[in-house]
């Protein structure tokens, strides 16, 4: 079962994503800020990271850079309320970006696709 790490400082969103991802058959773990997220990437070796961009403290873009410095093989999905995130070149290193929506189906599809691609690449 693939492990998905959710990094978001909104507890209700973490709960929503956890609920939906579990229903879709993923194992989930959550971090409430970027620093904790980085720690979990190292200690728990997730198969995929969902990263919120705007967070108190270290933001998602900086976290993205640090994650990829440690392990650039882990897929990262940037999850954001901004539609203008593409203006920042630093976000271009992410594997995907999904705009936050109450309809989580796009997020689920993206996660499924990336996990499958990664699994296929490993085999």
């Amino acid at each position: 079962m693939s492990k998905v790490l959710i990094v978001d400082d909104e507890p209700h969103l973490r709960l929503l994503y956890e609920t939906e991802l579990r229903r879709a058959g993923f194992e989930t773990m959550t971090a409430c800020n970027a620093a904790q997220g980085l720690e979990f990437v190292e200690t728990m070796k997730p198969d995929l990271v969902i990263l919120d961009i705007r967070m108190a403290g270290m933001d998602g873009i900086e976290a993205l850079q640090r994650i990829l410095e440690r392990d650039n093989s882990v897929p990262v999905v940037l999850n954001t309320a901004y539609s203008s995130y593409k203006d920042n070149y630093l976000t271009w290193a992410a594997d995907a970006y999904v705009t936050k929506s109450s309809d989580v189906s796009e997020l689920l599809d993206t996660v499924k696709g990336l996990v499958e691609t990664r699994a296929a690449a490993r085999n």
């Binding site: 209700h12 709960l15 939906e20 936050k100 109450s102 309809d103």
Partner: peptide, 12 residues
């Protein structure tokens, strides 16, 4: 963000 939570859970 609150809307995502409200709408998301409504779907759930």
């Amino acid at each position: 963000n609150p809307l995502v939570a409200i709408g998301g859970f409504a779907r759930t």
